[in-house]
């Protein structure tokens, strides 16, 4: 049964990933990413990481991709990218080669080693117990508990018979509490940084530097930007010049 769920979720994950890189429209890419994220959440569930599955949907699919879509919609970046233009000659075959290389290397390591390359020993201090089958409200019958290795040996106070989130919380607030506090600080810094970066700039802005677009098309880009005096969105002629670059 887990195999069936794995095959279906894996299929949708790969489908979403291919949709992400092959869609011309960024909004379609974002929606394919959501499909992939959902599939990965199901795979988390398949491995008894329920809290992570829920958090994956809430944070990744429900907030991060929403943020992406906001930016795409508000900035109007949804003009479709012309995928047939290659800025650097031979970029695409090399990228494909790199991708295949990465894939072959990782699969080789995984397939060759035993246990899928897991070289560590089983954890003694932070055991992850199969939480569903040993949840306190279900009477654990024989067939449910006999295939959880080491569950009866580890007596880390109260770690058995705990739902997944309890184990996660206990480890997070005892062993990893320092990292937890640091990530709290990180989030605060990120919020402050984002608010600062996204503010409308006050006063005169420096003139825009000339950009040299190293593309296979249109050599007319070096003087296409007029200085912006007040930080408004680029005036019409700039947008027109930019769009002629794109469509050349």
């Amino acid at each position: 049964m887990e195999l069936v769920v794995f095959l279906i979720a894996g299929f949708f994950a790969i489908l979403g990933a291919i949709g992400l890189i092959a869609s011309r429209n960024p909004v379609h890419s974002a929606l394919s990413l959501v499909m992939s994220l959902f599939a990965v959440a199901v795979l988390f569930l398949n491995q008894d990481a329920q809290f992570l599955a829920a958090v994956q949907v809430i944070v990744y699919a429900g907030a991060i991709v929403v943020l992406f879509l906001f930016v795409i919609m508000l900035l109007g970046v949804d003009e479709s990218e012309d995928l047939s233009i290659e800025p650097i000659a031979g970029q695409r075959p090399v990228a494909l080669l790199v991708g295949i290389g990465v894939l072959v290397l990782s699969v080789f390591f995984v397939a060759v080693s035993a246990d899928g390359g897991a070289t560590g020993a089983e954890s003694l201090t932070a055991p992850k117990v199969d939480s569903i089958t040993q949840s306190s409200t279900v009477s654990a019958t024989e067939q449910l508990t006999d295939d959880v290795p080491g569950a009866d040996d580890e007596q880390v106070d109260g770690a058995e018979n705990d739902p997944n989130i309890n184990q996660l919380g206990r480890a997070l607030f005892t062993d990893y509490v320092f990292a937890f506090e640091v990530t709290a600080l990180l989030l605060t810094i990120a919020v402050v940084g984002a608010v600062l970066l996204a503010r409308k700039p006050k006063g005169e802005l420096a003139p825009m530097p000339d950009i040299v677009v190293r593309s296979a098309h249109s050599p007319s880009s070096t003087s296409s930007n007029s200085p912006d005096g007040d930080g408004e969105v680029a005036p019409a002629d700039d947008a027109a010049a930019a769009s002629t670059e794109e469509t050349a």
């Binding site: 990481a49 089983e122 480890a171």
Partner: peptide, 20 residues
């Protein structure tokens, strides 16, 4: 998460938490 499930270590899920 896969390695966490393989080694019965909750550290796998903790790492995912932080990566998220």
């Amino acid at each position: 998460v896969t390695f966490g499930a393989e080694l019965n270590d909750i550290g796998g899920e903790i790492s995912v938490f932080f990566v998220l």
